[in-house]
Amino acid sequence: MKGFFKSSIGKKVLMSVSGLFLILFLLFHLCMNLVVVFSASAYNEVCAFLGSNWYAVAGTMVLAAGFLVHIVYAFILTAQNRKARGTDRYDNQNLPAGVEFASKNMLVLGVIVCCGLLVHFGQFWAKMMYAELAGTEGQFAPTDGAAWINWYFHDSPLAVAFVIVYLVWFAALWLHLNHGFWSAFHTVGLSNNVWIPRLKCIAKWFSTIICAGFAFVVIFAACGGINTKSDCCNKEKCGAKTECHQEAPCNPQTCPNAEQGK
């Protein structure tokens, strides 16, 4: 394998393998997110399970390494490709129909996905896993994932903006996955004339299921579907009528039952 990762194909294989790893993570993340649709308390248990435990932290570090490899090599390969293309450009280039939009714009789509990821990190990872590790207190408990989702997509004054940002993020992710999925298999050699159309079809279904699943959770939360009031979760104190998920001090500013609770 000497020199393999310095070769053009070797670098592409790194992109593909890291991409497939991230695709598996997306599948796992979607399964986790869908839990909140059925039960907020069950979702919070998942959040607690994946909080600051050593296996969750180790998994996060492996995941971060996967992201890093994928992102760094995306920029390296793009820089090499730009150099290979040369400085001269065609006066006009009319590519025939059949060249996917996503395949020509994977870096741009990837940058949009990364921007969405930063917003997501700031809103959830920083307030949950990081807060738990750092021992900081937030508006909600770090393990009260359902409350955080409800806050950002339903209760927050910027909820509509957040929903739009997330839907744009998922659209970019759909396009990125649509090409990335089959392209990854092709690059590692697991493709031929029979499997190219099959992989493209699977890629469309897979990316649609993943992105529609994520979008559904966001829209579900935006419509007030998540049954949580963690701000006033102490039933006895504030008299919340909804299910309580954990003990936390009542916040009079956000608790609709604060007066009654007092």
Binding site: A84, H186, T187, G189, N193
Partner: peptide
């Protein structure tokens, strides 16, 4: 030469319709 990103433009413009499935075989 640059790195293949599987856009498939080469296959569409190839005057001999050489398929990108050969790229998978090369890989």
């Amino acid at each position: 030469f640059g790195n293949c990103t599987n856009t498939g433009a080469c296959e569409l413009e190839c005057p001999k319709s050489v398929s990108i499935s050969h790229i998978a075989r090369l890989n």
